[in-house]
Write a protein that binds this DNA or RNA. Sequence first.
DNA 1: CGGAATCCATGCCGATACTG
DNA 2: CAGTATCGGCATGGATTCCG
Lengths: 120, 120
Amino acid sequence: MVPRRKSLVPPPPESCPLNTCMKYLGGAWTPNLIWYLAAGPRRFTELKHDLAGISSKMLTTRLRELTDLGILVREQIPTSPPTVEYRLTKLGLELKPAINAIASVGMRLKEIAALRKTRV
Amino acid sequence: MVPRRKSLVPPPPESCPLNTCMKYLGGAWTPNLIWYLAAGPRRFTELKHDLAGISSKMLTTRLRELTDLGILVREQIPTSPPTVEYRLTKLGLELKPAINAIASVGMRLKEIAALRKTRV
DNA sequence: CGGAATCCATGCCGATACTG
DNA sequence: CAGTATCGGCATGGATTCCG
């Protein structure tokens, strides 16, 4: 009987901030949303076009969620018709490295997947 | 009427590798699974204890998924009873930076959330 | 324009039981 | 030990409609 080895690494710091984070970044559109907002303030409809295919409902949900988290801020601008801008907060900007890391991994996975298809 | 501005940034490279990636990293346990495997080969039951609370079914599902993706490999070891080891492939190791980035973001979000509670 | 409200399909994931 | 099989809840996200 092979004894079970103890964990080689400590659990992800403070009991799984990985999950804490994925809980928010995990939303289907969240990473892309942050991706586009990272370039500067953006309006609701603009974001809706950036994230081609997202429903108003989901966009609203995600925007609210991230606003509550302090990752972005909503700003009413008194024009006519009124416009609303969203932009990343300082905290939100801290997410960029993670988003970029995820994006590059995504590219690798796509490459690999493509290779597989041509190989087979 | 305020004209809608065009996107300020290119779409996430190659049409959303962000989603390509999140599709896999998004699974509830996936990031933690990779976290533990990053330290070295690990057996099924060991992983099951590492990821406290995961069901056999989910663990199997995630392991298969990641194996199919080429992120980790399964290796039968002819002991008695037979044991099986999983370890990250070279491709799998490339995910570590992303996982780490996500983990550090997770920690920040936890900090912030904690501050909020004490502040209010 | 910038949403809110409602209904509904999908599927992720947990619980439980069983196997070579 | 290392899984497979089955059932089912419940959250996630899509489609549609309506509002100030």
